[in-house]
């Protein structure tokens, strides 16, 4: 189960084709930085791969296992949505217990930024603390691949650095697809960068490519 194979992904809303025949392969140990303008389909692509929304057509395989729906992605693919998703009526230590195994649970609960809050509920945390916890849960989940949507959104610089270290520390265990508009931080951690442009994937090798594909203005 060392390879996430995404192929023939098609998605349209009405007559608007968002994704056109996407092909992407992620190895364990890789961090794929997925960039793209607003509305280019980054979140949609991650949700399709995870299985939370239905594609017009898709072929997703992890190792030899075909992933058709959410039930099949359990312990194989985890997904961090761009908005808060933790239930606000469950204590943090219970949430960690539900989502992680014993080893991962101990790592999260002993983290200096999480430790003071383990007996609180998620709505008692600040926006940044909550986001940081969600990223940790996704990065330390049992899954082989993690899809992370806008991890740096709403985080203080100190947390951002911590998040980058966490993601990098986990590449021995899993593969990541990370998308965010904070492209500098994405470029810092990604082993490979791609951009979603006009429904398809383009490879990014240098910052000038981002200008070429209209992601950043040419005066930057």
């Amino acid at each position: 189960m060392d390879n996430l194979h995404i192929d023939s992904v098609l998605k349209s809303y009405g007559h608007n084709q968002i994704l056109t025949d996407i092909f992407l392969s992620v190895e364990k140990g890789e961090i794929i930085g997925l960039l793209g303008r607003n509305g280019s389909g980054k979140s949609t692509l991650l949700k399709l791969v995870f299985g939370s929304i239905v594609a017009d057509r898709k072929f997703v395989k992890v190792g030899d296992k075909r992933i058709n729906n959410l039930a099949e992605s359990i312990n194989v693919i985890s997904y961090l949505p761009q908005h808060h998703f933790l239930p606000n009526h469950i204590k943090i230590k219970t949430i960690v217990d539900l989502m992680c195994n014993e080893k991962q649970k101990n790592i999260i609960l002993s983290n200096e930024l999480i430790k003071p809050h383990i007996n609180k509920k998620s709505n008692q945390l600040s926006v940044g603390e909550r986001r940081f916890l969600e990223i940790m849960l996704c990065a330390f989940s049992k899954s082989t691949f993690s899809l992370i949507d806008e991890p740096f959104n709403g985080l203080a610089p100190k947390y951002k650095e911590e998040v980058k270290d966490i993601i990098k520390s986990q590449i021995k265990e899993k593969g990541f697809i990370v998308t965010d508009h904070d492209y500098r931080n994405i470029m810092d951690i990604a082993t490979r960068i791609i951009i979603l442009y006009d429904g398809g994937i383009k490879k990014i090798e240098k910052t000038e490519d981002l200008i070429y594909w209209g992601y950043i203005p040419d005066n930057m």
């Binding site: 939370s52 039930a71 992605s73 359990i74 949505p81 808060h84």
Partner: peptide
């Protein structure tokens, strides 16, 4: 009200139908 909480359960392998 709390649509996004579904993702917590999705990550545990529970679909909307289930």
């Amino acid at each position: 009200r709390y649509k996004n909480e579904y993702y917590f359960y999705y990550n545990l392998g529970l679909s909307k139908l289930s």
